[in-house]
């Protein structure tokens, strides 16, 4: 972690500083780093850019997951058989080379790790940014380029995080869903979305997810340093399209089911 607070004194902090040194303000050899050198991956992780890089890479994993998850779940519109077969296939994925659910757990582990990295990095970077401006502006800021999505990343992130827990309790563990039947996603989904508050929560969370992706899917190109005039103008386009697809796809389910447009 950075140690902004410790290095902010601009006076020469060397022990052998003489009178002339003390006159120096924020000059002279830099204050020696207080951090010990650590092995490569940790060293990289320590830097803000390293964390942003980790967020981008984990973000790509999560984007892939969100997309695949949506494609799988949209099968609900094709009927009970389709989605339940798909759910069963996920467990048998990789058979016979791998035992049942091993590949699924492998994928889940990757997604959990990506989540974890994404959240820890975001938390640490937020703290770093807070420390970089302890005294806020006392007058109203007038943002020019920062949009709603970019400025609410940490809030949409928190909403998504809370939603994921609820979503797991609702449709994976079933602890929040009294009608939960393991292995029957089709019915579980309808039980859930038949309750309007639950559907609203899903809709709100997925809109937040879309907003989060709108900035994140663009921002990751910058963080990874993928910058080329040939495709730069497509980066925004990609992010908007991705966010749009996710919002439309994921919101369609609770919306159509809860309004009764689609029935069992």
């Amino acid at each position: 972690m950075t140690r902004l607070d410790e290095t902010l004194s601009t006076e020469d902090q060397r022990e052998d500083a003489d009178a002339a040194d003390r006159l120096l303000r924020s000059t002279g050899p830099p204050v020696p780093p207080t951090k010990r050198a650590v092995p490569f991956p940790l060293q990289f992780w320590r830097s803000g850019i390293g964390k942003k890089w980790a967020m981008a890479v984990s973000g790509i994993v999560l984007l892939g997951y969100v997309f695949a998850h949506m494609v799988g779940n949209l099968k609900v519109f094709l009927g009970r058989h389709q989605i339940n077969t798909y759910g069963a296939w996920l467990r048998t994925l990789g058979e016979p080379a791998f035992p049942r659910t091993v590949v699924l757990w492998g994928l889940r582990t990757a997604v959990i790790a990506a989540f974890f990295i994404h959240i820890v990095a975001a938390y640490q970077l937020t703290r770093m940014n807070r420390r970089a401006r302890p005294v806020r502006y006392q007058s109203k800021r007038d943002y020019v380029a920062a949009n709603y999505a970019s400025r609410t990343m940490r809030w949409t992130g928190v909403i998504i995080g809370l939603f994921v827990i609820f979503h797991l309790m609702d449709l994976t563990w079933g602890t929040a869903n009294p009608h939960f039947v393991r292995g029957d996603p089709y019915d579980n989904l309808f039980y859930s979305f038949d309750q309007v508050p639950v559907a609203v929560a899903y809709i709100v969370a997925n809109i937040a997810l879309g907003i989060h992706i709108f900035h994140g899917a663009w921002s990751m190109f910058q963080s990874l340093g993928w910058n080329n005039p040939r495709y730069n103008r497509w980066r925004r386009w990609f992010a908007s399209a991705f966010a749009g697809v996710i919002i439309v796809g994921n919101v369609s389910m609770p919306l159509l089911i809860t309004t009764g447009a689609v029935t069992r």
Binding site: A20, D21, L23, L24, R25, S26, T27, G28, P29, P30
Partner: peptide
């Protein structure tokens, strides 16, 4: 040179 300690810099002086 400031970094190497050969020059001492006194700004706002």
């Amino acid at each position: 040179q400031v970094h190497l300690g050969n020059v001492r810099l006194y700004p706002r002086t």
